[in-house]
Simulated assay, not measured.
Amino acid sequence: MNLDIYKNLKRSNRELINLNPIQRGGILPVEAKKAIYEFWDGYSVCDFCSGRLDQINTPPVCKFLEDLAEFLNMDLARLTHGAREGKFVIMNSICKEGDYVVLDKNAHYTSYVAAERAKLNVAEVGYLEEYPTYKINLEGYKEVIDNLEDKNKSIGLILLTHVDGNFGNLNDAKKVGKIAKNKGIPFLLNCAYTVGRMPVDGKEVKADFIVASGHKSMAASGPIGVLAFNDEFSEKITKTSERFPIKEVEFLGCTSRGLPLITLMASFPYVVERVKKWSEEIEKTRYVVESLEEIGFKQLGVKPKEHDLVKFETPILDEIANRDKRRGYFFYDELKKRGIVGIKPGVTKEIKISVYGLEWEQVKYVVNSIREIVDKYA
């Protein structure tokens, strides 16, 4: 074994402008970075644990979960290792084997895998329009549910992806929540790309469950997720072990501990404040879309943008790549020369970007840099 490769591990692009949508919401504030120093030893969160992660008072995990539930306007909150684990906890605890989960066609792959692991079936709600918007037909939830009921199929859960990770389409959760309530079916809202970036009110949208991602959207180092739910389902979700009565079965006793939890907590005041600036983030995003469409990019997904994740078709970049000796890597190289990363190396047909959290000066620098690259090679 060559153990030297594990020495002095460094991240080469740490100081550069990062446009990767999966990372923009996970950038830590100074407060979280300082907290890492205090808790970087393994299990340091458990100095004063009496057996339950959610009952630890020092550091104030117990109070944090109460505040987190209030922040989301839900009754209770628990921690998971990610949004995907939260989905599985819900499916495993409230559904019966063979039940159907009705979900949108833009759902993350982990929504499907969680259902498969819980031995459930899946029924998709399709698009109101495919290319170029890929907008989900939210009224289609009722149609899919009616069809399943006509066939005497048992429906255990309705799942809506609040914002999908491919096109960045924001769905009207209240509309689906109303359908769920009228049908008497539990409603799960996947907020991996929304909680922590923008305001989310669980009661307002009639959600029974919310899952969120700390490392994607709540400025935590991760991996860590949030599961918020209402009292009606607390008995099933927080059921404790017969042999170890203090331990909650669905969470295998304890979930995410250490730095993922500490950074999530330390970043929480920062996150609470930054969601109040959501309208400005949308303004930045729309500026990027308008500016880049002027040079031949084409935004996919619903217009105007209502979320910071943007997917573009980029035929102009692909055309340049066909002539450049670096092929598809030319764009990545040129951006990195200008201190910008986050675009996948070698990709030029379509790209995904986000400028969430960047200052206006940085946003304009990104736009001008891309314009400059296109002008230079086109």
Rank of each mutant, 00 (worst) to 15 (best):
I237L: 13
H162C: 14
N2H: 08
L292K: 01
H215Q: 13
L170G: 08
D375E: 15
M265I: 12
S234R: 14
G339L: 03
W40L: 11
Y112R: 04
G357W: 11
R286H: 00
I56T: 10
I179A: 09
V355R: 08
K181I: 07
A220L: 09
N13Q: 09
K181R: 15
L79E: 07
V289L: 00
K183H: 13
E143R: 13
F330E: 02
I210P: 01
C254V: 02
F330A: 07
T194N: 02
K247F: 11
A180E: 01
D333K: 10
A207K: 08
A32I: 04
G184E: 05
I370G: 00
Y332M: 01
W360K: 13
K142R: 14
K311Y: 03
V341H: 00
E85R: 04
A192E: 13
G202P: 02
A77S: 15
V310R: 06
K352F: 00
R327V: 01
L3D: 11
I22R: 11
R326D: 14
V122M: 06
E143M: 04
A212K: 03
G165C: 10
L68F: 06
K364F: 07
N171S: 15
V144K: 12
G177V: 10
R24S: 11
V226M: 12
Y141Q: 06
A207C: 08
K305R: 15
K311C: 11
K236D: 13
E273C: 02
I145G: 09
I17R: 00
N152W: 00
L227P: 03
R286S: 00
D75H: 08
